[in-house]
Design a protein around this nucleic acid. Sequence first.
RNA 1: GCCCUUGUAGCUCAGCGGUAGAGCACUCCCUUGGUAAGGGAGAGGUCACGAGUUCAAUUCUCGUCAAGGGCUCCA
Length: 609
Amino acid sequence: MLRKIPILTAKESVSSAAAVALPKTSESPQLLKIRHSMSHVMAMAVQQLFPNARVTIGPWTETGFYYDFDNPDPFTEADLKAIKKGMIKIINQKLPLQRVEVSRAEAETRIKAQNEPYKLEILEGLQEPITLYTLGEKWWDLCAGPHVEHTGQLNAKAFELESVAGAYWRGDENRQQLQRIYGTAFETPEQLSEHKRRIEEAKRRDHRRIGTDLDLFSIEDEAGAGLVFWHPRGARMRLLIEDFWREAHFAGGYELLYTPHVADIDLWKTSGHLDFYRESMFGPMTVDEREYQLKPMNCPFHVLTYASTLRSYKELPIRWAELGTVYRYERPGVMHGLMRVRGFTQDDAHVFCLPEQISDEILKILDLTETILSTFDFRNYEINLSTRPEKSIGDDAVWDLATKGLTEALQRKGWDYKIDEGGGAFYGPKIDLKIEDAIGRMWQCSTIQLDFNLPERFGLEYVAADGSRQRPIMIHRAIFGSLERFFGIMTENYAGDFPFWLAPEQIRLLPVTDEVMGYAETIQSELSAAGIRSRIDRSGERLGKLIRSGEQQKIPVLAVIGAQEAEQGTLSLRSRRQGDLGSVGRSQVLQAATAANAARAAGLELGAS
RNA sequence: GCCCUUGUAGCUCAGCGGUAGAGCACUCCCUUGGUAAGGGAGAGGUCACGAGUUCAAUUCUCGUCAAGGGCUCCA
C-alpha cells in the first residue's frame, strides 16, 4: 500500500529549482531601466512627502535599487507605506522621463535653485556634457540614465520598498549619515512574489534559526558577543567535519601542528600584524612583566616551528596544517551568527617550498580543496586570481614566477578563473575561491596566498644543494576559511537537512508500544557499537507524534519499531531524503548505515534483501 | 563605531503606569496507540542590565549590554 509521506528528495534538499527566473539587474537592460527609474520615482515621492529631504544618489543594485536621503527625521515603516502610495500615484500618472543635456553652469544654477548641496558636490565630479532626467514637469535629478520612457512602463504591482538603513554620504563613515531606503522592482508581479518567496526561503535556511531549532550552538550574552558555544549536537557535527578534514590532510601529505593561543607580542611586531591590524586585535595582557597577545593568526607560529631547526632543500615541500582558533576584535554591530564572530577556528595550513615547486603545490591544494568542498556538496566554484598590486614588496622575478605558478596550476586543474589585476596582497599573489550554495548564493571560503613577506621578516632559510642558504616560498591556504563560518554556510546549504554521515542523530528509534522497548534497546546498542548515532524516542507519545517530532528535528532516518518488527528482527525505515524504505532486517540496516558513514553518503543504500 | 528596529517562560509571541499571559517544548497522570500533533494536570519569568520620573515602572525617560536590518571594516 502506498503511504502518503511528504518526501524530501535528495535533489530538493540541495536545490529548489524555481519556475520563475529572476535575472540580475545587469543581465536585463529593461530591468535596469525599471529599477533605475523606480529609484527616481521613489525620490520624487519622498520629496513630495518630506520637502526637507535632500537627495543624494539613487542607483540600481543587482537585486533592486536604493536612494539615500538626508532628512531631518529618520523614516519609519509607516513612512515607507506612505512613500509607496506616493510612488503608485506617480506611476499611474504615466509621467515622461526625459534626458536633458545642459552646460555645467546651467546645471549649477538649477541645483542651487533647488538647494540640493549633495547634488552640487556630485556635479563637481562630473564631466560635460552634464545630463539630467526630468520626471514629469516639476521633478528632475542629475543622472546619466538610462531610464524607461514614462512611468507607465513601471508596474505598480511589481515593486516593494523593503527597508530603511543608515548609510554614509560617499560611503565615508566620517561624513553625514544618510537615510537609505531599499526597494526592489520587477517587470511582473509574479517575479516580485518569486523574489519574496526566495527571501522566505533564505529565512528558512538561516543558520541562526536552524542552530537554535536543532540545538547545535548558541552565543551567550553573559560570555560576550561573537563567541560561540557548541552544543553537543553541533559539537558532534564539528568533530565529524574535523575528522574528515584531518583524514584528507594526512592523505594529502600534510602533517598537523598544535600551537599556543597566546604568545609574546614581539612575535606580532616581527610579523608586521601589529602595525597593520592593531585595531582588530584583542588587547595585550601582561604576565611576568612580559606582554602577551591572544593570537589573531596562526602563521607566525608555523613560521617559528619551521625556524626551530635548520632545514634542507630535501625536506621541502613542508606542508603543515592546524585547526587554529584565533581571536579578532570585530567592531560592535558587525557580528552575525556564526558568519562573523570574534573567536573562530581557521583550517590554516602553510606550505614551505622551492620556487620550482609552486605549481605542483598549488595544484595539490586545488585538488584537496575540491575533495573537501565536494564532500559537502559544494561543486560550483568561482575563482579569482589576484595579481601584483602597485604597493607591494618582493622583486619582479619572484612575483612573475609565483603568478606563473598559480596560473599554471589553475590551467592544469582545468578550472575557469577571472584575473583581478592588481588585487593581490602586498606580500604576494593569491587565488580566492567562492562556492555556490543550494539557492545560488556565492560564499568566499577558500583562499591560497603566496607570501614573500613573512619568510623575509622571520629570516627563514633552507640549505640548498650547493650549500648556500636560500629563502623558501611560503604558501598560506585555508579551505573552509573559518570552521564556524563554513558550518553556517553548510547549514544554510542543506537547510538543516544534513546528509546521513554528518547528522548528529542519524537514526531515531520509534517504539510503537512499551512492549517493544527491550527490542529497541538491543537495536540501539548494536547501532552504538557500530558507531552509528541513534536514540530511542522515549516520550511515550503515539507514533504520529513521534514521526512528527523526528521530522521536525530533521533526523535522516526514522525507524519504527512495533510488535511486528520485534518479532521479525526488522526495522521499518522512513528516510527524509529517500522516503519510505519499508521493513528492513536489522543486520542490513547496520551494514547500510556503516557503509554510509564510511562513504560519507547522504543516505542509506539498501541492497536487495 | 554609525543609523534604524528590537529585547517579556527553553522557543515563537501577546500584554500593560497598579507588580504577568498564550501556543509549542518540559514534568507527572490517563491512554498501549502503526507513519506529521490523543486527553488531563503541573512546573517554569529579577519582563536584558543600571539609573531617573512617579504614591507606584515590565510599561515612560536616559544610559549600558546584546540581537536584527544596513553603512563602514574584515590579515
